[in-house]
Computed example of a mutant assay.
Amino acid sequence: MLALLIFSYANGLFSSHRIERATYRDIGMRVVAANLHPDHDTIATFRRTNRTAILCQHCAVDGRYHRPSGDGACRHRLRQRKSCR
């Protein structure tokens, strides 16, 4: 599911409904989703419960990096030392 979200974000799809529709019509999305068609509620729930993992992957794709802090939370930063929030 994480790969599906990253692929859809890279293609400009941010809505759960549009991501669901794209798994039926777009061949690239079908390959990434392993020819499965998750419901928009499933996509939204996954996005809500795994927000930190999605942010870490998004920062890695954007060229940003993250560094774990002492309390277990990730501190996301740009290479220019700006906040990535």
Score class of each variant (00 low, 15 high):
M1N: 05
L2C: 03
L2Y: 05
L2S: 03
A3S: 15
L4F: 07
L5P: 03
I6K: 06
Y9N: 01
A10S: 15
G12Q: 12
L13S: 01
L13K: 07
L13I: 08
F14H: 11
F14V: 04
S15Q: 11
S16F: 05
H17A: 12
H17W: 12
E20R: 07
E20Q: 15
E20C: 13
R21V: 04
T23V: 01
T23R: 08
Y24Q: 11
Y24G: 01
R25G: 04
D26M: 09
D26H: 09
I27W: 12
M29F: 15
R30N: 02
R30M: 15
V32S: 10
A33Q: 06
A33P: 09
A34D: 15
N35V: 07
P38W: 01
P38S: 09
D39S: 14
H40W: 11
H40Q: 13
H40T: 05
T42L: 12
T42N: 07
T42W: 10
I43T: 02
A44N: 11
A44S: 15
T45I: 10
F46S: 02
F46L: 06
F46H: 03
F46Y: 02
R48N: 08
R48L: 06
T49R: 13
T49F: 02
N50K: 10
N50Y: 11
N50H: 14
T52F: 00
T52G: 00
A53W: 01
A53E: 14
C56W: 00
C56P: 00
Q57Y: 08
H58G: 00
C59N: 12
C59S: 09
A60E: 14
R64T: 01
R67I: 09
R67V: 11
P68K: 04
P68A: 00
G70V: 04
D71C: 09
G72L: 06
A73N: 12
A73R: 15
A73E: 13
C74D: 00
C74H: 12
C74E: 03
R75L: 09
R75I: 09
H76Y: 15
R77H: 05
R77W: 01
R77E: 07
L78C: 13
R79K: 09
Q80M: 01
Q80F: 04
R81W: 10
R81E: 10
K82N: 07
S83H: 08
S83E: 14
R85C: 06
R85T: 06
R85S: 13
